[in-house]
Design a protein around this nucleic acid. Sequence first.
RNA 1: CGGGGCGUGGCGCAGUCUGGUAGCGCACCUGCUUUGGGAGCAGGGAGUCGGAGGUUCAAAUCCUCUCGCCCCGACCA
Length: 622
Amino acid sequence: MDRLKPTSAPPVLRSTHSRRARRPRSRARCGSWPPRGRSWFPIRPRVPLPRSAMRFSHALIHTVRETPSEAEVVSHRLMLRAGMIHKVAAGIYAYLPLALRSLTKIMAIVREEMVAAGAQELLMPAVQPAELWQQSGRWEQYGRELLRLHDRHDREFCLGPTHEEVITDIVRAQIRSWRQLPVNLFQIQAKFRDEIRPRFGLMRGREFIMKDGYSFDRDDAGASATYERMHAAYRRIFARCGLRCRPVEADSGAIGGSFSHEFMVLADSGEDAILACDTCAYAANQEKATCRPPAPPPPIDGPPPAPVATPGKKAVEEVAAFLHAEPSRFIKTLVYRAGERTVAALVRGDRAVNEIKLTHALGASGVVLASDAEVEGATGAPCGFVGPVGLPAGVEVWVDREVAAMASAISGANRADTHVTGVQPGRDFPLARVADLINAEAGDGCPRCAGTLQLFRGIEVGHVFKLGTKYSAAMGATFLDEQGEKIPAVMGCYGIGIGRTMAAAIEQNHDDDGILWPTPIAPFAVEIVLVREDDAASLEVAARLEEALTRAGHEPLVDDRAERPGVKFKDADLLGLPYCVILGPRGLKEGKVEIKTRATGERLEVAVDEAVAWLTTHLAAT
RNA sequence: CGGGGCGUGGCGCAGUCUGGUAGCGCACCUGCUUUGGGAGCAGGGAGUCGGAGGUUCAAAUCCUCUCGCCCCGACCA
């Protein structure tokens, strides 16, 4: 501020913040006036560009050349470099103007499709009373991910990680009769989940913007129809956002329920593993995916199990190498604690236990791998030498389907430094509890057809659940049916991570230079690079183009900064708007501008007067 | 919560082992030159070295405690 000495230019003359524009182009041209020091005699452009959000020189867009060290994935890195987001705390971000423009477009698409599919928008509070969560039973179930607060009267609240409780509270107060159903309600709002480890920028934040929708139907058939309608709407939403995405069958997780699909954007940086058939449409999250069940074993009648010394060999790999046998010939016995129960899970030596499947099989709320001491206490054998033959009665034995189908296997002997060979499931230990307990892997057979499963990584951008009556029954969201009978509504719930969708779009659409925005969700449609922003003729054309494009509904961003052209080109590539109009004295001499298509790098020269029409045609096509 | 790492101008880092003038690059400000793919020269502003104790004549540096952030794992959208 103290720099504004009498010699500096009066503010009124700062028609633009362009450094060059507010000082004489050339000292020589001005002779020796002013004699020395700062110029107070700026040349104004003939067509001054007023301050505007669409002028780079005044927009809050601060690009950086260096990659911030915290960014691990490309979307995070590019969003930081392009000045789209600002971290306020771990997993908590401010959305700067550029990001918000894109988010707003995604939200508009979501709204359109949700409304078209029969849903109504509402807005619920972010802060929710503990009471509602106690009614659904989730106050206890939901762990520390639920951020709990106390108000000044010491009453308990939480920050909403999701809104089943509140929506059910609303509907039970509003809905009395079957005539009012079905209803389908959604909101777009900031959610808060106190993630153990937020990471990857907007991909897994603690606060995040989510579209969450909830449907209430009279019966299961109605709920299924709504589910299908939402499923279809989601496909349209993600397609319109320019995402290549695939619905996969999913585990319904803590929200509870019976049937669910996740919408996965395929990306190497994805946190979820997906198995998809190479032949049919089967695709599922690895948490849920099954593979083709094994063929029943040929009947054999081998000798009884024989102990074999395996000193110090604990891991399957070690024992397998020691005995010169394939890991797939082993039975791996993993001891879990599920509440008060002690469970032995038997899987083939080359397989990994899927704890979610095990939890479901047990009907438990969760399982934890037992500690070494617990293992030894329960089985009498040190960890690494536990096996199914001769386990104490207190241990509940669960057998994977593949193990049940093994003709003869090697397992721990329940004695230190010893394994047994020739173990025959069914003969040497009971097959009372058999289930699918393993992670399906790439190369496994498809459960639906003769195809083979392949492994992909994906980012979950949307999730649809059929909830059933879990919340409506617990919280009394009932209505009277045609027979005058009071029954709970059948619910569904439908989420879309808005910020995550934007991040996923960048994951899927970028190159070494920056983002390649899909047109429908690009913050602006076109960037006009003023090669020489101090050139009056260029400014005049830029102003005309900007106005015409705006009138045509195209939202241009004009880079009028007093930077060298190279800087502007690099930033244009980084921001990645679909089209870039390069406007400089060189082309203007022939009445032309250059239009660059960001995604392909194609450039062509068009007459100034044709640029708007060209862009209109091409923007409409994408 | 377990394991690992990092906190030094807005950003990226050096300096810490071996205590002694806080430094570099980018960004920012000023001037001049330059101007179609991240310019050059000159000048300048900006840092309680995450915080609190302690040791010492002297602490970014050594010790103790604490807070924050990042990565791997378990958890989850």
